[in-house]
Amino acid sequence: MLKYILKRILMVIPVLLGVTIIIFFITRVLASDPAPVVLGEHATAEAMAAWRADYGLDDPIWMQYVNFLVSAIQGDLGTSYYTHTPVASELAARFPATAELALCAIIVASICGIALGVLAAVKKNKLADNASMVLALIGVSMPVFWSGILLILLFSATLHILPSSGRVTPLLQPTGGTGFFIFDTIAKGDFEALGDVLVHLVLPTVTLSLYSMAIITRMTRSSMLETLNADYIRTARAKGLAKRSVNVKHALRNAMLPVSTVIGLQLGSLLGGALLTETVFAWPGIGKFAVDCVLKSDFPVVQGVVLLVAVIFVFMNLLVDIIYAWLDPRIKYGAKEEG
């Protein structure tokens, strides 16, 4: 196990190095000159030349990349062209919003997806199975921005029961703390603000969880069907065990291995920032921040966001593999054992 973990950690290095090369050359070589965008169309040539010199954009491209890589290894992702603050600080201020939304979405997706998948497997080829698969098909097929707009039209514009944007009402926003509003409001005992935070979370959480819920439902159903046909399940039934006990204690426990992998990977992608969901609901996370910075040609921020997403996704992949091996000791990694 230790040898496998060390091997996977070493494999992370070339992956992240490749990500830095791709995103750097896309933003510095293929993209247009950011100076006119940042300074405005009326800026003089001398002002733009001085601005490029300040940010090192007039250095050879290979030197720019080396400087970027060395600084990134030290935790310095550069400075925003607009706010003139470190990119790491900008991301740290917005990541709690993305993480809070992602965690809520994966919890909803996991609970609903596993429940629907088990129901579909137990009631194979019946109404419950067909209904669950239709819901999963809708979740996979419907674009996130479209489902988000539909939910806003229904619950905000028509029924007026849920807010359409933001994390919290400005007057109730908690100050200081961790940036995770649910935790901060509970820690301070401000339950009015907690209720407001939860209400603002409903629509973006449901929207973001639909796709993941559909994937988890399909995987749970497939894994449960395979497990229910296993010999030990037939033995348990022959011994007279209750149907619920067989389905939950025996079948579901063993069917959760591939499902846990899917949940981990889905969480990794959600933590990377839900660009469309955050944009539709004006959610102040790193996804919406990345979109705004792309439109403004704030390339240091774009590079920082992509690198952060890559680190999160690679780490989640590694964590899922380790958990998978821990849950199932039969899994062997590396060279095959002789004999």
Results as ranks from 00 to 15, higher is better:
Ile106Met: 13
Ile106Gly: 11
Ile106Asn: 06
Ile106Thr: 08
Ile107Leu: 15
Ile107Phe: 05
Ala109Asn: 07
Cys112Ala: 14
Cys112Pro: 00
Cys112Trp: 12
Cys112Tyr: 10
Gly113Asn: 12
Leu116Cys: 09
Gly117Ser: 06
Leu119Glu: 10
Leu119Val: 15
Ala120Ile: 02
Ala120Lys: 01
Ala120Gln: 01
Ala121Leu: 11
Ala121Thr: 06
Ala121Trp: 00
Val122Thr: 14
Lys123Pro: 08
Lys123Phe: 09
Asn125Thr: 14
Asn125Glu: 11
Asn125Phe: 11
Lys126Asn: 07
Lys126Ala: 10
Lys126Pro: 04
Lys126Tyr: 00
Leu127Pro: 11
Ala128His: 00
Ala128Gly: 05
Ala128Arg: 02
Asn130Val: 11
Asn130Ser: 13
Asn130Thr: 15
Ala131His: 01
Ala131Asp: 01
Met133Asn: 10
Val134Thr: 14
Leu135Val: 07
Leu135Ile: 14
Leu137Glu: 04
Ile138Asp: 00
Ile138Arg: 01
Gly139Ser: 09
Gly139Asn: 10
Gly139Pro: 08
Gly139Ala: 03
Val140Arg: 11
Val140Ser: 03
Val140Lys: 06
Ser141Cys: 07
Met142Leu: 10
Val144Tyr: 05
Val144Asp: 02
Val144Lys: 03
Phe145Ile: 03
Trp146Arg: 13
Trp146Lys: 09
Trp146Cys: 12
Trp146Thr: 15
Trp146Gln: 08
Trp146Asn: 02
Ser147Tyr: 08
Ser147Phe: 15
Ser147Lys: 04
Gly148Val: 12
Gly148Ser: 13
Ile149Ala: 14
Ile149Thr: 11
Leu150Ser: 06
Leu150Met: 15
Leu150His: 03
Leu151Pro: 11
Leu151Met: 14
Leu151Asn: 07
Ile152Arg: 04
Ile152Tyr: 06
Ile152Val: 13
Leu153Lys: 12
Leu153Met: 11
Leu154Ala: 10
Leu154Pro: 09
Phe155His: 05
Phe155Glu: 01
Phe155Val: 08
Ser156Gln: 12
Ser156Val: 11
Ala157Val: 09
Ala157Met: 03
Ala157Gln: 07
Thr158Met: 09
Thr158Asn: 10
His160Pro: 14
Ile161Tyr: 00
Pro163Asn: 10
Ser164Tyr: 11
Ser164His: 09
Ser164Glu: 07
Ser165His: 12
Gly166Ala: 04
Arg167Glu: 09
Val168Met: 06
Val168Arg: 07
Thr169Phe: 12
